[in-house]
Design a protein around this nucleic acid. Sequence first.
DNA 1: TGTACATCAGTGAACGCGCGTTCACTGATGTAC
DNA 2: TGTACATCAGTGAACGCGCGTTCACTGATGTAC
Lengths: 205, 205
Amino acid sequence: MSKRGYHHGNLRQALVDAALTLIEEKGPTGFTLSEAAKQAGVTPAAVYRHFGGREDLIAEAARQGYEMFADLMEYAYTKSQPSALASFEATGRAYLAFARKYPGHYVAMFESGISVNRTPDLALLSGRALGTLERAAAELSAHIPPDRRPPSQMVSAHIWAMCHGVVELFARGSPGTKSPFPPEELLESGIGIYLRGLGLVPPDR
Amino acid sequence: MSKRGYHHGNLRQALVDAALTLIEEKGPTGFTLSEAAKQAGVTPAAVYRHFGGREDLIAEAARQGYEMFADLMEYAYTKSQPSALASFEATGRAYLAFARKYPGHYVAMFESGISVNRTPDLALLSGRALGTLERAAAELSAHIPPDRRPPSQMVSAHIWAMCHGVVELFARGSPGTKSPFPPEELLESGIGIYLRGLGLVPPDR
DNA sequence: TGTACATCAGTGAACGCGCGTTCACTGATGTAC
DNA sequence: TGTACATCAGTGAACGCGCGTTCACTGATGTAC
């Protein structure tokens, strides 16, 4: 490793970390390159040794998020196999857990306006994460009689929407909106009711 | 009306309209007072004849949004009475319709960071809109046997989350994310499955 | 109808600020001999 | 082990820019007589 022992140690990652903190605090457009540099104890110009500019720094923060996100989703899915139902529920929980644990990454990924097609890297990771959710939905759908089975892409879209909505509205301290329930409970119960509606869970448990 | 025939005509509303367009295009933090003034054909300083500053302008845009939103939700609710189910479904549809028709207002209301407690006016209107959804959920819950009835606040939170998630993920041209289904269809089917899960809709229709 | 006056919406110049980015530089680090 | 040299991470000053906000002003409008 040629990284250690340099002037700073590992400025590149320090900048990403600072960016994540700032994005979490001030939102993606409130984030400034200069402030991230300052927080890393460095001149704004130093950033250009490691990144092409402001956008590139945000994109790298998002990339690291997608990487963890994809891993977490895959782990949740695999761990709960071979039960399609358990895998599906686990990916939903993993989604919320990720958003709660890494809010800076979540914002950089889904609210920063960074396109997933910015780099092949980003597109690949994002596809891997979303693909896991879709796979779980597809296996689950297989247990529903074909004539009353919604497309599995639609099922995964419903769950994604529910997850994202819970995160945005109830898992963040959004101003003036206080959650009447813990977000985990809200998501768990929401998904539960939804699955019952699909006929995959007994109507009374 | 003393408004007409002045220098500009009605600069106040012209500024709000410009702000809405800009907020829709560039997001709440990308919006600038100067650009709104320019778009209204006026010097930035002129804004201060009508608003306390940048934030006040955003707040007024949000207020007008909440006003329409509350009206639309109430209309949808009332129009579909006395059926609790029809009223509930109608408010969900009204939510999405509002977000689609007035994206600038929607962003100003839910993504600008403007607190609903900024003015009593805002709090009142927001409470009226959300209250309608909760009332619809409560009446709907009354049709479920008490022992398997989730709290009605939870039901309305689920629906709100699903609506918001669909809006954010699939109703906007968010970069790199293309929706596999029209958002209206997605929301309609999602709410349908959810209601079936609550036991309020026959399992097969 | 015509004149004098008060009002006040919008002007234009100015302010201090922090932004992203550039550039020639410096000086600590690692390497070759 | 010691010296000379190359590398290159980070510096510091400078840039042009657009921002939100202030202020004394101007000049079109509506009103009183």
